[in-house]
Design a protein around this nucleic acid. Structure first.
Length: 1081
RNA sequence: GGGCCUAUAGCUCAGCCGGUUAGAGCGCCGCCCUGAUAAGGCGGAGGUCGAUGGUUCAAGUCCAUCUAGGCCCA
């Protein structure tokens, strides 16, 4: 039964006492519990209430990076959404107001591609004949459909974000805001038209996107002629090596048709170039020194070498004179030039290559483009006019040969891209495109990046910073359909007009366009009269990169331009954003770039950058491999909390994550169920106490003795609790969920496997005594705090537990509660260290017992300990060791007698190294050489000891030497790190009988459980023993056994006891020679 | 070709400010504990801490180079 809001009405137990807590089921079904919690959140409007409750508090702004809604969500979509929820919940509990607006990225090529596939369309021509209006309507519908799937996932994950008021990049008001920002950039002269090199299919007459270039079969191996051509030098730069006079540059290319457009030659400024001469005829050529032998072959000498930089500025005669290219045919430097193949001198035709274009732009070279959009040379070009570009290679090479400029032709095999649709060889082709001059704000972006906090920190100057330093202008436009249309109108005189909103557009067009769908094709139909010349202006055909849309979300999410300006001012920049690392060049950049361009300031202060999600075997998840894990079934199998914990709190969020059932199952068992069972333990005994008319609940917790008056174990747990709170708070403030998770998991382990284990007896005995009241109070307080610490990470289980534990004055949901405060006075580092030692001694003792094969149930006379600090260990802590090891006494090693103990001494390098530095080794050698027993005795009696090093005495303290003492005979021993526990293995008949009694207690407890009795049920037990020793043990310890197993009667069986009619269960233990009958009293 | 990340047990991963027997979990084997637990403990088997070189009294840890894998970009 799930707790409900009236769980604490106070219910009457069978025995008549009032119990505060609802009874909890023995096992919890986590996914089912989560559904209950989801329903409670929904009914109680807790998210809305958490926002309302923090209204007016300091704002902590979070920006949701909009997922692209081009397909169904996968587990990798969960990852970032976990972190986007954890920190806002944490900050809300800390008292900040954290509005969370959802958002969806609806535009872009991925959506178009998905719709093309659905419609069976292939390529832009097909889309246009299908109709842009209808196509875009399908895109809108597809985006909406996938938004629904993302919403379902978001809710199920427990990601609290306002879905009702989500921003959508396809909404009119959003597009208008984007237009507004573009106009700002346009007004600064940073939005310009220029050429861009794209892979281009001349048959389809369309550029290919990166996505299309990634299709299989695009790159095919082809064998083509590669030519090495002579470019005779015409003039040399000042101070050039005179040997260059009359030399020919050797230039290599696999695309002879581009030589028609040759504009420049690039050399690597740092490479060495050889001037080589053929003896006899004075023929002189220039080639990279590293490639000289390969390119030239035999018969050439290198007469000199010059750095590439020395060639820069030379001019040459172009290979063809078919096209006029003013101001060209120079040697320019190019960092991209390699000496892998070719000649180390690279021919540049800016219209037909990306490096060519970029280099040309840097050196003010013209862009000439004698090839038409259909891939044919312009008719007016001599020799090759009208010819398809590929077909021009042959006549051009022949012409070069005839003019003596062809140095060599060879067949060259390489991979070359082809159109994935029609298999036509692609060409790299300059197309007009719109750019944002981000290079103009590069310094600003670098400065803004400096004051941005990255988690993990290495990204800041590494992956992201490196990318930022190599910033190039943003190619903004796309010749596509489903996107924010570029709001620029151009007239016949090429005057440009940018519209910043529909209102402005209405004014420019002279009609009311406020109801216009700003998408294509409707916006294309709007014409204006040019404000400059009055001519008719039409919109340029492009839409913009969808990344610009998402980068505009800080303002566009708030509605049309000018709306909510005050809210924007308060909520910019954001305190927190979080995405996976693939967003470096995506959203992290577009947010920063748009922010710097429009507002002169980055849009975020803290950015958490997550690793990628891969499958259990480390492979990337892809539909192709069929290894995509669907998030909803995964959450139904393990629960959303387990997945949240996995991503946020186990392993390292910044590295690549492998997710699978095994990892999630472990989290459920180790963390979530252990936590839950501790809660259920408290409730079980609180309700058992209620049945004894000792009702226990939060009111009684408040009445527990003050912390200082509680037993040591309780003070230890409170100390750990507050240290945990302190650490987890600091970790979350530093955006380190992994460290927080490790600390929480370790606290849960301490709580369940040490505190509760060692305190059980106090819970059995109930809260009536001071000790009992301390135990109940301490456990309750710890769970009350722990549940709040867990709330951001595992919001479902934490809220379910909260509903059980919360006091009458606590808020209804843990997510309305405040973050726990640290009481530093309760943190006792010394106690924490002593408890750690206590637990180490217990471990050593258990190890020693196991070595002697004596079960822990069998009491043994005594244990001896040798360990630094043991003398100071409190009696309470020694008593924990005694109980855990089941020994009668615990004594220092000295009790054994000095002469019966072996000593081993080892240097402690940590202290010696600090003291002696270079002299550490001889001191260590002297310690090892010393007589261990003597050294140990001296150290113990005097607290210091002197050893001889190179004839000089050196004084050592107890910290400088690790002494391990081991008793010689009659003991079972375990040692580690200078600590030793020895246990005396000597079982007297008396101890043997006590061991048997303990054995029987355990058997009866097992029987209770298998008979389905409640932990507080009273029983009667009668027994029959064949072994006289056992019989004696049961008689001697009858009272102890009876009280341990809650038996009202415990004694030898009479015929009446064994009568089946009485209803007692018979349990036989032939190994022990015992039979007993158990019945409810 | 450039940048970044990763490399520790069969698998998944910790490992702080460098400190001398390198840890945990999962899995396997044996044993133990259990009055909440789907838990817990002890032992066994399993490691040239990717390689090489360097710094240092001391390197899994710091530096350099290399190798392999991943991601992004060309």
């Amino acid at each position: 039964m799930a707790p409900t809001d009236d769980a604490h009405a106070g219910q009457t137990t069978q025995a008549g006492g009032q119990r505060y807590f609802p009874d909890l089921p023995p096992a919890i079904d986590l996914p089912a519990m989560e559904h209950d919690v989801l329903a409670r959140w929904q009914d109680g409007q807790f998210f809305e209430r958490s926002l309302k409750a923090t209204e007016g508090r300091p704002l902590w702004t979070f920006y949701e990076g909009p997922p692209t809604t081009n397909g169904m969500p996968g587990v990798h979509h969960i990852e970032a959404r976990v972190f986007k929820d954890v920190f806002p919940r944490f900050k809300t509990m800390q008292g900040f107001h954290v509005p969370r607006q959802a958002g969806w990225d609806c535009h872009g090529l991925p959506v178009e591609v998905a719709v093309e596939r659905e419609l069976g369309l292939s390529g832009k021509k097909a889309i246009e004949s299908y109709g842009i209006a209808e196509f875009n309507a399908r895109c809108r519908e597809s985006a909406q459909r996938h938004v629904d799937a993302f919403e379902e996932l978001t809710v199920r994950l427990g990601y609290w974000v306002d879905l009702q008021h989500a921003y959508r990049t396809m909404d009119t008001s959003y597009i208008e805001s984007v237009w507004w920002s573009l106009k700002e950039i346009f007004g600064k002269g940073l939005l310009v038209k220029d050429f861009r090199i794209s892979p281009y299919c001349p048959r389809c007459e369309t550029p290919l996107s990166d996505h299309e270039m990634g299709q299989p079969d695009v790159y095919r191996l082809v064998t083509e002629p590669a030519v090495t051509v002579r470019f005779p030098l015409a003039s040399l730069p000042d101070g050039a090596n005179p040997l260059l006079t009359g030399a020919h540059l050797l230039v290599w290319t696999t695309t002879p048709w581009t030589l028609v457009s040759n504009t420049a030659v690039a050399v690597h400024p740092g490479e060495s170039y050889a001037i080589a001469r053929k003896p006899g005829d004075g023929d002189t050529v220039v080639v990279a020194e590293k490639l000289a032998a390969r390119v030239l072959g035999d018969g050439w000498h290198v007469v000199a070498t010059v750095p590439g930089a020395a060639l820069v500025g030379a001019t040459y005669r172009p290979p063809f004179d078919l096209v006029e290219i003013p101001g060209a045919h120079r040697v320019v430097p190019g960092g991209f030039v390699t000496t892998e193949d070719g000649t180390g001198l690279v021919h540049l035709a800016p219209a037909f290559g990306a490096d060519d274009m970029e280099t040309g732009r840097a050196h003010g070279l013209p862009v000439v483009k004698p090839v038409r959009q259909d891939g044919r040379f312009e008719e007016w070009v001599p020799l090759v006019g009208g010819m398809f570009f590929k077909d021009a290679d042959e006549p051009l090479v022949r012409d070069l040969a005839e003019r003596g400029l062809l140095f060599r032709v060879e067949q060259y095999e390489h991979s070359y891209p082809h159109c994935w649709r029609c298999h036509t060889p692609l060409l790299y082709y300059a197309l007009p495109s719109w750019y944002i001059r981000t290079t103009q704000v590069k310094d600003l972006m670098l400065a803004e990046n400096e004051r941005t906090n990255w988690q993990p920190p290495t990204i800041k100057h590494g992956r992201y910073g490196e990318w930022l330093r190599n910033n190039v202008d943003w190619a903004l436009s796309r010749t596509r359909y489903w996107g924010t249309p570029l709001p620029i109108w151009e007239c016949g005189e090429q005057h440009l007009t940018c519209a910043g909103s529909l209102a402005e557009l209405s004014e420019l067009a002279g009609r009311d366009l406020s109801g216009l769908d700003p998408h294509r094709p409707y916006v294309d139909e709007v014409t204006l009269s040019c404000p400059e010349c009055g001519g008719e202006a039409r919109r340029v055909p492009e839409v913009i990169d969808a990344w610009y849309d998402s980068g505009s979300m800080p303002f566009a999410r708030l509605g049309a331009p000018g709306q909510n300006a005050e809210e924007f001012r308060r909520a910019y920049p954001a305190q927190f954003i979080c995405e996976a690392i693939d967003q470096n060049r995506g959203w992290f950049y577009s947010l920063m770039a748009v922010g710097c361009l429009v507002f002169g300031r980055n849009a975020y202060e803290n950015v958490v950058c997550l690793g990628l999600v891969v499958d259990e075997h480390g492979r990337k998840m892809s539909k192709h491999l069929g290894n995509v894990l669907e998030p909803l079934p995964l959450m139904e199998a393990h629960g959303a909390d387990a997945i949240r914990w996995f991503f946020a709190a186990s392993g390292s969020p910044w590295s690549t994550r492998r997710i699978g059932d095994a990892a999630l199952g472990e989290i459920v068992r180790k963390v979530l169920l252990t936590y839950w069972n501790t809660v259920s333990f408290l409730v079980l005994y609180a309700n058992a106490a209620a049945a004894q008319d000792q009702a226990w609940g939060p009111a009684q917790a408040a009445g527990a003795p003050p912390a200082a008056a509680r037993p040591l174990l309780d003070r230890w747990l409170l100390s750990e609790l507050h240290a945990t709170t302190q650490e987890v708070t600091a970790n979350l403030e530093g955006f380190d969920t992994a460290a927080a998770g490790r600390r929480l998991a370790s606290f849960i382990d301490d709580l369940s496997n040490w505190y509760v284990r060692r305190s059980r007896r106090r819970f059995w005995e109930g809260p009536a005594t001071a000790d009992g009241s301390s135990a109940f109070g301490t456990l309750y307080e710890c769970l009350h705090v722990l549940t709040r610490l867990m709330a951001p990470l595992t919001p479902f289980l934490a809220d379910h537990v909260w509903a059980v534990l919360r006091g009458p004055d606590d808020p209804e949901s843990v997510h309305l509660a405040s973050w726990p405060a640290v009481d530093e006075a309760l943190i006792d580092a010394q106690l924490s260290g002593q408890m750690a030692q206590t637990r180490r001694l217990v471990e050593l003792g258990r190890s020693a017992r196991a070595a002697a094969s004596v079960p822990v149930r069998q009491p043994l006379p005594r244990a001896v300990v040798s360990a630094a600090g043991f003398a100071e260990l409190a009696a309470d802590l020694r008593s924990e060791v005694i109980h855990e090891l089941n020994v009668r006494a615990l004594e220092p090693m000295a009790a054994v007698g000095e002469d019966l103990v072996d000593h081993v001494v080892k240097p402690n390098f940590r202290t010696l190294g600090r003291r002696f530095g270079k002299g550490t080794k001889p001191v260590a050698a002297a310690i090892i050489a010393a007589e261990p027993a003597v050294l140990a005795a001296e150290l113990r009696s005097a607290g210091k000891v002197s050893v001889e090093v190179d004839g000089t005495p050196v004084a050592l303290g107890p910290d400088d030497v690790i002494v391990t003492q081991t008793p010689r005979t009659g003991w079972t021993v375990a040692s580690e790190g200078g600590e030793t526990v020895g246990i005396e293995v000597f079982i007297t008949p008396e101890l043997r009988r006590e061991g048997l009694a303990r054995e029987v207690i355990r058997l009866i407890q097992d029987a209770r459980k298998s008979d389905g009795l409640h932990v507080s049920d009273r029983i009667t037990v009668s027994w029959e023993a064949t072994d006289p020793d056992l019989s004696a043990a049961l008689t001697e310890h009858g009272q102890l056994i009876a009280s341990e197993v809650l038996a009202d009667r415990f004694g030898p069986a009479t015929p009446a006891d064994t009568d089946p009619a009485r209803g007692a269960h018979q349990h036989a233990e032939p190994d022990l020679g015992l039979t007993f009958w158990l019945a409810r009293a």
